[in-house]
């Protein structure tokens, strides 16, 4: 009887082997987003990443060369080259779909800041590859942040940085992606 139990347990564990071999995360990002107008006809997704203490300290130690607690233009370039550009081959851990169509992930307007609590935040824009149609009242967005290497976790829900009278984020739905990722879906309208 005992043997039977142990065998059943072993078989159950074997079925879930992939989970067993996954690594656990060591870095953490709190993401938040907002939809911005790049010009009259194009939209962009503005992303804000709030890093954890360890990564923040690493970036500050290495890039805040004058130790004044502020990243100047040259230092932001350092952050970009040494602590951000490398994520390009992972698509910046982002999967973006608008009206179910996958958007290519390119990044513009990168900037980095040291917050008063010594936390580093990155801000960048992902331009959307379609013309904004003022007649089309609603766009369905699906934004997922996930690191397939399981090194970085996005443990919180994705925040929304703005909601003005004209811009509406409706039917928000947050789900988890893979093990340590997060996905936000919503309908976006402008009035």
């Amino acid at each position: 009887m005992r043997r039977k139990w142990v065998i059943i347990l072993l078989i159950l564990c074997s079925f879930n082997l992939k989970n067993t071999t996954e690594a656990h995360p060591h870095l953490f990002i709190k993401p938040s987003i907002s939809i911005v107008h790049l010009d009259n006809k194009r939209l962009g997704l503005k992303v804000l990443w709030e890093w954890d203490e360890w990564w923040s300290m690493d970036v500050i130690n290495d890039c805040d060369r004058d130790h004044n607690g502020i990243f100047d233009h040259k230092e932001i370039k350092l952050v970009f080259n040494d602590y951000f550009k490398g994520a390009e081959e992972f698509d910046y851990f982002t999967v973006l779909k608008v009206n179910k169509k996958k958007q290519p992930i390119t990044v513009t307007d990168f900037t980095a800041r040291i917050e008063p609590n010594n936390i580093v935040t990155y801000s960048f824009i992902i331009p959307l590859n379609f013309m904004f149609d003022h007649q089309n009242k609603s766009y369905h967005f699906s934004i997922a942040f996930n690191d397939e290497t399981f090194y970085i976790a996005f443990p919180d829900k994705i925040g929304i940085n703005e909601s003005t009278k004209h811009k509406k984020y409706r039917n928000l739905k947050t789900t988890t992606v893979s093990y340590y990722g997060v996905k936000l879906e919503f309908n976006y309208t402008e009035e």
Binding site: H24, H26, F28, D52, A153, T176, Y179
Partner: peptide
């Protein structure tokens, strides 16, 4: 897993 991740983050 989410609780576990939050706990690791907190301790870290």
């Amino acid at each position: 897993l989410s609780t576990f991740t939050n706990l690791i983050r907190y301790l870290s």
